[in-house]
Amino acid sequence: MPWRKPLLFVVCLLPLAWLLAGAVSGTLGPDPAKSLVLFTGSWALNFLLLTLSVSPLRRWLGRPGLLRYRRMLGLFCFFYASLHALCVGTYILGWDWAILQEELKERPYILVGFLAWLTLVPLAATSNRAAIRRLGRRWQTLHRMVYLSLGLALLHLFWLVRSDRAEAVVYGVIGGGLLLWRLYSRRKAPILAKK
């Protein structure tokens, strides 16, 4: 149905709308900068997991049409990850090289987070149909890098959390489950092809 993609686009913007409403009304808590950083990081990871959930859901539900929404979810993952990087650069580092060097000594998870964002850049840049046609089979190989993005993002989260790890464990279980499903489906595919 033609209205589903526009509706999904609007739904994907709701976290940003909530964030902007909180910033305008001053309800982001005692440390708004920290809230901005954590909120955008959480939603980047949420969209990454949603993007990776499309393939298993398509098979389990028998709805191949779900694949048409994966690109949009992936681009929103990159969008929120870029907002997260922008907030870190602005509110944590102040775009100061000396502060970055000092922060990397005390908080090396910042480097892991940056690497996670960096792996998303080529995926977002090649998500259009022209890139798919130009890259051919190499496109799938390149886009498997999303699993590296997930691993780095989860490492970034686990390294970041210092006390209550419950949320990080939930993300880790979901992410680990998606990685295991991918490995299982790849091992099963050659067997099915021989039958």
Rank of each mutant, 00 (worst) to 15 (best):
L115R: 04
G62I: 07
F39S: 04
R144I: 06
S163W: 13
Y80E: 00
F39I: 01
W139T: 04
R71M: 08
G136P: 06
G74D: 03
L93W: 10
A153N: 00
L148N: 04
G172D: 00
N128Q: 10
A81R: 02
L142S: 00
K195F: 12
T141Q: 13
A153M: 00
P64C: 11
G89N: 09
G65W: 13
S42R: 14
L135I: 05
G136S: 08
L50I: 05
L115I: 13
L157C: 03
V169W: 10
S25P: 01
R134I: 02
V11Y: 03
S163C: 11
L142E: 00
A81L: 07
S35N: 10
V169R: 07
R186E: 15
R187W: 14
P32Y: 04
L150Q: 03
R4D: 08
K194W: 08
V161C: 09
P32I: 01
L36V: 14
A21L: 14
I174T: 01
L180A: 15
T27D: 05
T141E: 07
P190C: 04
I191E: 07
I191F: 12
R137P: 06
Y91K: 02
S149L: 08
Y69C: 01
G74R: 01
L66H: 05
A17G: 11
L16Q: 09
T119W: 07
L157H: 09
L154T: 04
V10Q: 09
V161F: 09
N128A: 13
R162C: 01
F9D: 07
L50P: 04
G74P: 01
L179D: 00
L67D: 12
R144N: 11
L16C: 10
I174M: 09
Q140W: 11
T51S: 14
L75I: 12
